[in-house]
Nucleic acid binder design. Structure first.
Lengths: 351, 351
DNA sequence: CCACAAAACTAATGCGCTTTAGTAGTCATT
DNA sequence: AATGACTACTAAAGCGCATTAGTTTTGTGG
């Protein structure tokens, strides 16, 4: 009978390498970390042995001797029912990973219900020495997280702009998309088609980018003298998107164009338009913020604000690496999203 | 001038607790880990001090002294362009987290391009002692991962069934959905409506559950004597979904009902039907595997196979915890998904 | 009041790595 | 040939925790 190998492959340590290579453990450490103190010949030998043994440094041991945990954290605070589809996050994460992988950094990921839990996780991770840095998403008005992370001394990159007036923190970079400019380009498009009554069905009101979009919309409306331009906040869910759309269309002078803050809301809006027998774009024009399969597969295909989310994630991760390398915090702006005109926008009825 | 506190809050260690409580470090360890060797009074005192100091055990130190990394891993091997929408994963992860959080286990998450990279990550994580266990998704025909993980001695739970005939591995549990039964319920529904020519636009052909669905479909067709029932594989993308639909509808005797393996494919199929002027469900019935906002917001709303993905994730995580606790591997079956009939299915034309 | 066990607590070791201090060996300089 | 300056290497300590072995205190029965 085959003797079953019960011991499941021991992990090699530096001691193993040292023995095989016939040198001390310190020499191994120097050799593998490009530190001076070993001859080129020894260095090569040690490296070969390490390679051959399939050695990898124990992150625990590394972390314990002050090298950091080789991990960055990302917490997503969204009530469970809200994280339905959202192409955004998986793409963002995929971009982030691409950059982190180059340095063999792990991504510790957690989904929680609310901001309070998120802060608790940060404290926990800090105390447990689990992460070297953080990626913070969904910045809010009056956001407690930058101050907290600064206090804990955890480098972080805020993805999406902080609200204006938020004090700068030394270890915190920001990578943001120009929501104001993007909103301006949408209004441009709709105004150019002849729309004068525009509704903006926004996302969560306490998010900083929601406010930026709302402000920009109103500024653009004011600039063009449009009185009938409003924003309504939702929780990003299809339910609230549909509800808000229904109420808006029931008004005496309904909007001729609606801008939705994400693809899910837009799809829900489209469904409501269909349900009420409104032709899109004949009777009503729709625009979605963020493109996705939903927008492309919808009938009619939705005009959408296309941005390269995965590249956004890459940039954020790059900034975090830069912080971890000891570079000063920066504030960088991502590419301006591009409005992709499709079949859901046209001149308003009677024009 | 305010003296700036440059030191960003030192993390308390057991030594700090020991000093404040006036006991040795060992006593602290005993007290905090419910080990015998300290009086109830001391235990309480130590705990209070720990609480007050906001102490949390350093995972690195814990891991180094043999306690495991307090982390489980999850690798998602999907080509970047494929992970478009997919409500599935975020929900799965959210369910997983719910269970892991109770034990304060972290989730190390990674997105890679292919299976080879995924295996490399497993080896790396193992060698780096980063994870205590793994959640494996997208089981395949002839899957190398169970054997690898068994060799490495990493407990794992495979989410979704392995292909039949895969040898059992001692440290590997399986949590699977009854794809065959689900497919049977879909065929039941369609056959009951009068459909005889059914097309199945499937996902990636090398995934085990894809094969299960295909087999079940053919078995059900054979049982009812339906000759014109086929499956076509895709990569789950809207592009291939649309393409496959187009080709199928161009055939001399096109199907009267199409079953799609996910919501994205189904939406793409719906768009193609619209583009060709086919009425859904009048001319063509559509069914989506997996429900989501897409299905609910589509026009007409799509009949879909609803399953509680987040509960699926919870069950998988629970199995992993059980494995980590030293319990033997198990194979458990999740609830049978439920077919939610909506507006996209009806009797075929001319019936 | 003593012997002796059990309870309460401390000291010491190890996990795998980095790093500082320390020890040979090599080479050039005067 | 002796001094110093490097180079190549080894020994040892420490990171924060768990754990084992060892020590002191307390409690019990005789």
């Amino acid at each position: 009978m085959d003797p079953v190998r019960r011991t499941p492959a021991r992990r090699p340590t530096m001691k193993d390498i040292a023995q095989r290579a016939g040198v001390s453990e310190s020499a191994v450490s120097f050799a593998l970390n490009d530190r001076p103190g070993v001859s080129p010949a020894t260095r090569d030998r040690v490296r070969r042995v390490a390679e051959q043994l399939g050695w990898r440094p124990s992150t625990a041991a590394r972390a314990l001797s002050g090298e950091g945990a080789a991990t960055v954290g990302l917490v997503l605070a969204r009530p469970a029912h809200t994280l339905g589809v959202e192409s955004f996050f998986l793409q963002l994460v995929s971009g982030i990973q691409e950059v982190l992988a180059r340095r063999h950094l792990g991504l510790l990921f957690q989904v929680v219900e609310d901001l309070g839990e998120e802060c608790a996780i940060y404290r926990r991770w800090w105390a447990e020495r689990r992460v070297d840095g953080l990626l913070v998403v969904d910045p809010r008005l009056d956001d407690p997280r930058p101050a907290l992370l600064d206090e804990l001394g955890l480098p972080a990159v805020v993805i999406g702009a902080l609200a204006p007036g938020t004090p700068a923190h030394s270890g915190i970079s920001t990578v943001w998309a120009d929501d104001a400019g993007a909103m301006a380009s949408i209004v441009d498009h709709l105004y150019g088609l002849g729309h004068r009554r525009i509704l903006h069905i926004a996302g969560l009101p306490h998010l900083a980018h929601t406010q930026r979009r709302i402000r920009s919309l109103h500024a653009e409306a004011a600039r063009r003298g449009l009185p009938d331009v409003h924003s309504i906040s939702t929780d990003y869910s299809d339910t609230e998107g549909a509800e808000a759309t229904r109420r808006a269309l029931a008004r005496p002078r309904p909007p001729t164009a609606i801008v939705y803050d994400n693809d899910v809301l837009a799809m829900a809006g489209l469904a409501v338009a269909n349900e009420r027998g409104l032709a899109v774009p004949g009777d009503l024009s729709l625009v979605a913020w963020d493109d996705s399969v939903l927008c492309r597969s919808a009938h009619p295909a939705l005009t959408a604000l296309v941005r390269d989310t995965s590249s956004f994630g890459r940039h954020a991760a790059e900034q975090l690496l830069s912080l971890l390398d000891g570079n000063p915090a920066r504030e960088i702006q991502d590419d301006l999203p591009r409005l992709m005109a499709r079949a859901s926008t046209a001149p308003p009825p009677g024009s």
